[in-house]
Simulated scan of single mutants.
Amino acid sequence: MNDDISGRGDPLKSLKLLWEGNEPPKRGPRPKVELMALVRAAIDIADAEGLSAVSTRRVAEKVGISPMSFYTYIPGKAELLDLMLDTVSGIEIGDVPEFDPREWRANIKLMATGLRDFYLRHPWVLDLASHRPVLGPGTMSSYEFALRVVDGLGLTPVEMDLVVTTISAFTIGAARPQAQARKVRDATGLSDNDWWFTIEPYLQTVDYSPYPVAQRIGPIVGELYGLGDADMAFKFGIERLLDGFAVLIERKGKA
């Protein structure tokens, strides 16, 4: 079974730890470290080495406790993943700002760009399979931020949530290949340009006549940005989403 699944552990234990933390012992010595020290240590390991490097032993050693002591704080790795995901989601939010609805396009761009940057700073979040949300304070701060971006536009509650969901899905889709490109570059030692130069001589010998549209478009695109300009694609996609939202918002204003 894949361990890298958020929500595989006991959801109530995860929620209790996120909202209440560890209860101090009624007797005996106080804990050597804070609960969040363990969670942040795990996040640091994942940021530096990837999710596969995170283990309860590694985390315990990083904060200076014995591996068995880890379980007096967190039931296991499954719950640790929940805590990591929620905590990292809220680390960079801070105080949720107010947004001017008149600047909704700029607000959505700000949210989408910030979300993409978040995934590129913490690419392991993209690798962490998650379907059931970890509804801790970090996740709620992120959701509050996103909803405020689209508040005051005349949308229904469901439409507000769907706009946020659409932006999030697009941003994940834009960030994932960029994160994967970095991973491939690090694993192979080849830049995208080096890879192209390696295969280009052979590609020049291939008959592309069965693919006339690809033959016409491919060289133009390849000369412009090779394997793809991530920033160009991201900006293009956001603008098209905004154009679509503009139709919805204008329609709601006339209703």
Rank of each mutant, 00 (worst) to 15 (best):
V163D: 02
V163E: 01
V163N: 05
V163R: 07
V163C: 12
V163Y: 11
V164M: 07
T165V: 11
T165P: 00
T166W: 04
T166G: 05
T166E: 08
I167Y: 04
I167L: 13
I167M: 09
S168V: 11
S168C: 08
A169Y: 00
A169N: 04
A169F: 02
A169M: 03
A169G: 01
A169W: 02
F170N: 00
F170K: 06
I172G: 13
I172T: 14
I172S: 12
I172F: 06
G173I: 14
G173Y: 10
G173N: 11
G173C: 13
A174P: 04
A174Y: 08
A174H: 10
A174M: 15
A175C: 10
A175W: 04
A175S: 11
A175M: 07
R176G: 05
P177W: 06
P177E: 06
P177K: 02
Q178C: 05
Q178T: 09
Q178K: 10
A179F: 01
A179N: 03
A179P: 00
A179I: 01
A179Y: 06
Q180C: 10
Q180H: 12
A181K: 12
A181C: 02
A181G: 12
A181N: 08
R182W: 07
R182N: 12
R182P: 06
V184C: 04
V184I: 15
V184Y: 09
R185P: 03
R185K: 13
R185I: 15
R185H: 08
R185Y: 00
D186R: 14
D186Q: 13
A187N: 07
A187Q: 07
A187I: 05
A187E: 10
T188R: 05
T188N: 05
G189W: 10
G189Y: 10
S191F: 03
D192P: 04
D192V: 12
D192F: 15
D192A: 15
N193H: 10
N193G: 12
N193K: 14
N193W: 02
D194K: 09
D194L: 08
D194R: 10
D194N: 01
D194H: 09
W195L: 15
W195T: 14
W195Q: 11
W195E: 10
W195D: 08
W196Y: 13
W196V: 05
W196M: 08
W196N: 03
F197T: 15
F197P: 04
F197K: 14
F197N: 15
T198V: 13
T198A: 14
I199H: 01
I199S: 01
E200C: 07
P201I: 01
P201E: 03
Y202T: 10
Y202L: 08
Y202N: 04
Y202K: 03
L203Q: 05
L203C: 05
Q204W: 00
Q204T: 08
Q204D: 09
Q204I: 07
Q204K: 12
T205G: 03
T205D: 00
T205Q: 06
T205V: 06
